Amino acid sequence: MRIVAHRANFAGPGSGDNRREAVDTCIDLGFEVELDVWAVGDLLWVGHDGPVWKCNPDDLRSMPILAHAKNIEAAAALASLEVPFFCLEHDQFALCSTGEIWTNYGAPSVTRSIVCSPELVGADETIAGFLARQNSVAGVCTDYPAVYRDMIASQFRAPEAPQP
Rank of each mutant, 00 (worst) to 15 (best):
E89P: 01
H68V: 02
Q155S: 09
E73K: 12
G47W: 07
R112V: 11
F86N: 06
G30M: 02
M1N: 07
I3W: 10
G139E: 01
P162Q: 12
N104C: 11
A161T: 13
L35Q: 01
S15D: 03
Q92R: 13
D58C: 06
E100P: 02
R7M: 06
F85N: 08
L81N: 02
M151Q: 13
C116R: 14
P84D: 05
M151L: 15
P57F: 10
A158D: 05
C141F: 03
V140D: 00
D58Y: 09
F10K: 00
I127A: 14
H6M: 02
H90G: 12
G139W: 08
G12N: 04
T111N: 12
N9Y: 01
S62F: 02
D42T: 14
A39Q: 15
T111D: 15
M1C: 06
V23K: 07
N18H: 08
N71E: 00
E32M: 11
D150E: 13
T142D: 00
R133Q: 14
I27N: 04
L95E: 14
F86T: 06
D36C: 06
W102S: 07
D150F: 07
S154C: 07
D24W: 14
E119I: 04
A67L: 05
W102F: 09
G129C: 01
T98W: 07
A94K: 12
T25E: 15
T126H: 01
S117T: 10
A74G: 10
D91L: 11
P13A: 11
S80I: 02
L78M: 12
G12R: 01
C141M: 08
S15E: 00
P162G: 04
V121S: 12
P57T: 05
Q92K: 14
D91E: 15
S97T: 12
G139F: 09
L66W: 11
A74D: 04
D143W: 00
G30P: 10
N71M: 03
E125M: 15
V115T: 09
F85R: 09
R61H: 03
V140C: 05
Y148R: 05
A11S: 14
E73W: 05
K70D: 01
G47I: 08
I65H: 02
P13S: 08
G12T: 04
Q163R: 14
I152F: 02
I72V: 13
Q163I: 14
L60W: 01
V33K: 04
M1P: 13
V52L: 11
V137I: 14
P13R: 11
H90W: 12
T142H: 01
H68N: 08
L60C: 04
V115R: 12
Y105L: 05
T98F: 07
G47S: 03
E21F: 08
D42N: 15
C87A: 14
P159M: 12
L43W: 11
G99Y: 08
N104K: 13
N104M: 11
L44N: 06
I101N: 07
A158W: 06
A146M: 15
R2T: 10
Y148N: 01
H48E: 00
D124P: 04
S136Q: 13
N135F: 10
V121C: 13
D58H: 11
R7T: 01
E125L: 13
A69M: 02
D17E: 13
T142G: 05
F85H: 15
P164N: 11
V110P: 06
P84I: 06
V4P: 03
P51R: 09
V147A: 15
L120H: 04
